[in-house]
Amino acid sequence: MERELFDLDRLVGNWESINLNPTVMIHRNGENHQLSIIYMNEVTKQASLATYEIQEDEQGYLVYLNGKRTSITYSQRLDMLTIATLGDYMRN
């Protein structure tokens, strides 16, 4: 499987799910990039944040969500981020 290479700096910013999943933010932390998922409690209207380090292996970029490998891909043509378990995201 050939992976699609892209610069993670292109992904820095806020991303909104087109499938009504939680909003995500990608940001730099020193030399590393992190993905933060903003969860909204519908009852209390309080937001909580879960942050994961974006890692790279021979298959591409990934994060470990709940202990499971979750791939991250990006379509430059569409400016669309895809997180395997959460679906597609458009830049906000």
Results as ranks from 00 to 15, higher is better:
Glu16Gln: 09
Thr70Ala: 10
Val24Trp: 00
Val12Met: 05
Leu78Ser: 07
Asp88Tyr: 10
Gln55Pro: 00
Val43Asn: 12
Phe6Ile: 09
Thr82Gln: 10
Ile26Asn: 06
Val24Ala: 03
Gln55Gly: 11
Pro22Leu: 13
Glu2Val: 14
Thr44Val: 07
Asn41Phe: 07
Val63Arg: 03
Glu4Phe: 07
Gly67Arg: 00
Ile54Pro: 07
Leu5His: 10
Leu49Phe: 02
Leu8Ala: 02
Asp9Leu: 06
Arg3Gly: 11
Gly30Arg: 08
Asn66Ala: 13
Asn29Val: 09
Thr85Glu: 11
Ile83Trp: 01
Asn41Arg: 08
Thr82Pro: 05
Gln55Asp: 14
Arg91His: 05
Asp57Tyr: 10
Tyr74Cys: 01
Arg77Lys: 14
Leu5Ala: 09
Glu53Met: 12
Leu78Val: 00
Trp15Gln: 02
Val63Asp: 03
Leu49Val: 04
Tyr52Lys: 00
Asn21Phe: 05
Gln46Asn: 14
Met80Phe: 06
Val63Tyr: 02
Thr44Gln: 06
Tyr39Pro: 06
Asn14Met: 12
Leu78Asn: 01
Ile72Leu: 09
Ala50Asn: 11
Tyr64Ile: 15
Leu49Tyr: 01
Lys68Tyr: 10
Met90Phe: 10
Asp9Gly: 02
Leu8Gly: 00
Asp9Gln: 03
Val63Gln: 04
Thr82Trp: 03
Tyr52Glu: 07
Asn66His: 08
Arg77Ala: 11
Lys45Trp: 14
Met80Leu: 12
Ser17Tyr: 06
Phe6Pro: 04
Lys68Ile: 10
Tyr64Ser: 15
Thr70Gly: 04
Leu35Gly: 04
Glu16Val: 12
Gly60Ala: 03
Val12Lys: 07
His27Ile: 04
Ile83Gln: 07
Ile83Gly: 00
Asn92Phe: 08
Leu11Val: 05
Gly60Ser: 02
Arg10Ser: 14
Leu35Asp: 00
Leu78Trp: 02
Gln59Gly: 00
Glu2Pro: 15
Asn41Pro: 05
Glu56Ser: 01
Glu2Tyr: 15
Phe6His: 09
Val12Pro: 05
Tyr89Leu: 01
Gly13Trp: 02
Gly13Glu: 04
Leu49Gly: 04
Gln76Gly: 13
Met90Lys: 15
Gln55Arg: 15
Gln46Leu: 14
Val24Gly: 07
Asn19Phe: 09
Asn14Tyr: 10
Trp15Ala: 04
Thr51Glu: 05
Arg3Phe: 14
Glu42Ile: 06
Asp7Trp: 01
Thr70Pro: 03
Leu78Gly: 03
Asp57Phe: 11
Gln76Met: 14
Met90Ala: 13
Lys68Met: 13
Leu86Gly: 03
Arg69Tyr: 08
Ser17Pro: 04
Leu86Val: 06
Thr82Leu: 09
Thr85Arg: 10
